[in-house]
Design a protein around this nucleic acid. Structure first.
Lengths: 207, 207, 207, 207
DNA sequence: AATGAATGAGAATTCATTCAT
DNA sequence: GATGAATGAATTCTCATTCAT
């Protein structure tokens, strides 16, 4: 198994310019076409470096993709955790998190593409750093749900993972058409509607 | 543009044996590995035919995948529509449909793999017959929601597509881990829980 | 070596309809693209028959081409011989033949394509019936030249084949651009000019 | 559209050794068989490189052929232009050029094969660099004819392109049998005879 | 006279990847 | 830190062709 070449790096430590160019090139190419349709030659040319250099920094074309995703996720997860800080009440936190999540996809179409479409069909992904961060995010979401249960505002008769899956599944499917067909996402309305549904369900309330 | 070679065929009309063998071969191979890891040589050998024959019936390796998916979907969608027949009340229909849907994934891991993991990252899929059937299914689901709104049991303050996306997203994410890691799915409990959530939301009821 | 399947046939004897359809199909396809770009599948489809039928009548895809060419040549050579009949004087015959030749290319672009572009790079052609007819035409042309020499109107200090090659080479290169780029040919002016050149040369006459 | 990969290069700038080996390999193989009968595997093996390398330097098997032809033509056209330098009188120039031309074919059977038999039936050729050089040669030939007209030694009542076509057609057809059947060409006699014909025509002079 | 089904065998081409410099 | 040159090994796909019916 090709093992990632990423070196743990302290925050802010700057990466070699060649590496950066390569990552940016992939980012830019993913705006145009599917990962499998992107060749290392493409990447090198777009980056203005040689193909060989890719293998200095990445063990693999796929490793490059995973590291790019990890960079996105690093930002995304950290950001999401921060975004919720200081908010009181699990329900408000949840509303905020859902908006934040949709907003991330809205603002980073490439990130969304990778996460929703390009990595899941590849077994190795589930051993990657990137996947670890996704799990960290899942846990974070679950912790908010737990908080809500403790507060008595979220029901406790449903396994928490099911709740998490509904939330994340809902978010993804709201964004999926836009991601696939490269359309814009306006996060506000969908986020609100989704939250309303998740919180209160689709039934009309019987008084 | 590689265009599908499928010819519209009246029900029961038998397909050439070679074609069937090829489709079955792919089905079987998808139980073992990812589509991209399956070669035409693999398929031909498993089917006991020559690679060339694949191209007599399918314009493409990908076209073969899409036609296989279409066959699954033909069965699945028709089945789903039948499954709901005779049931009174949109809510009961919805419960039935959700259970049916999860149950389909539970019983056809390969079908689930293809639909959830193997086709979406490929632009051409969205021009395929298979995708048309997915849309037919979406419409069907929406029509039940509409029925519920008409009955006054489903809220009318949320756009129907958002409701649909939440439902389908929820189903998919419930099944996804099992599909990815090849674990078994027991449809009953998750279906119930998911329905409860979708109908009533995650909030505790304030009397 | 694949041997031609053509059977000697008395004039007017009608050929099986399938065979005719195939030949016509090739004719029509050659109007659109190069021979090598035409597949047997193309031909069969255009002809409305199965590929297998091609091999009932022709030993080879190439044999089909050669037989088509032979049909054209049969007409062309016979016609050319007739065209000159009754004309008195080798020079007049030559003028007539050159015009006739260019006119044939003008009216049968596909014939010209085959003869000038599609068969020469293929060794087998030179063993075909078609090539025999080309040689018959060459002889016919040479016999007119000989006649002219006997009449004292054509010089006898140059080997006859060289004269023949100049004439045929001239005709071909006059027509070649039109054949290649699918432009129209107006036979009259070029034929006249070419004849003038061939007869009197490019030099101004010193009286 | 497969586009040539040739990069404009200043004279003397050395090409990568692999590229040279590939071109030489094709040259050598064309001495033995038709282009279509030569496989990339053949070429690679003869060159002592891998097939993949061919595609680093050429977009296509056909592109390789065209670039080889272009190299020949570069030499041929330049040489022809030089060959005529210093000669006084359009007629003498023409005689020299015709001899030169035939001599080129005589000494480079492969070059002749390519130009006369292997490229014309392929549409893409007419967009290639090689074809541009052929046109440059045509112009050069026409300029000599114009010179002769200005000198009063070449008749002005025939369009110059027709004259050019007769000359080139004559040369080609003189050489064609030798090129096709791989026979030797002795340039001297045919060149003389052809020139005599072109200059004075086939008619006997009427005093 | 014609076809449906299938094939053999290669052929071009792709692409990620390596390594000496 | 970066490159130029080259490769290995597959992989898809093509296409003429055959044969039992």
């Amino acid at each position: 198994m090709a093992h990632s070449k990423q070196t743990p790096r302290s925050r802010g430590q700057s990466r070699p310019p060649g590496r950066t160019k390569i990552v940016e090139a992939l980012k830019s190419l993913l705006g145009e076409k599917e990962f499998t349709a992107i060749t290392t030659a493409d990447i090198a040319q777009t980056a203005g470096v040689t193909e060989a250099l890719i293998y200095k920094y990445f063990s693999d074309k796929r490793d490059l993709l995973h590291q790019l995703l990890a960079e996105y996720l690093d930002y995304f997860v950290t950001r999401a955790e921060l975004d919720v800080k200081g908010i009181k009440g699990a329900v408000h936190k949840l509303r905020r998190l859902i908006w934040s999540h949709i907003n991330m996809y809205a603002g980073n179409r490439v990130f969304a593409r990778i996460l929703l479409l390009e990595v899941r069909n590849y077994r190795e992904y589930f051993n990657s750093d990137a996947y670890q961060m996704v799990k960290r995010y899942s846990s974070f979401l679950e912790s908010i749900v737990e908080e809500g249960i403790a507060e008595g505002v979220i029901r406790d008769d449903i396994p928490i993972p099911v709740i998490r899956q509904l939330i994340i599944g809902g978010i993804e499917h709201i964004c999926l058409p836009a991601v696939i067909f490269n359309r814009d996402i306006d996060p506000d309305a969908p986020a609100d509607q989704l939250c309303d549904l998740i919180l209160d369900g689709i039934s009309t309330r019987q008084p």
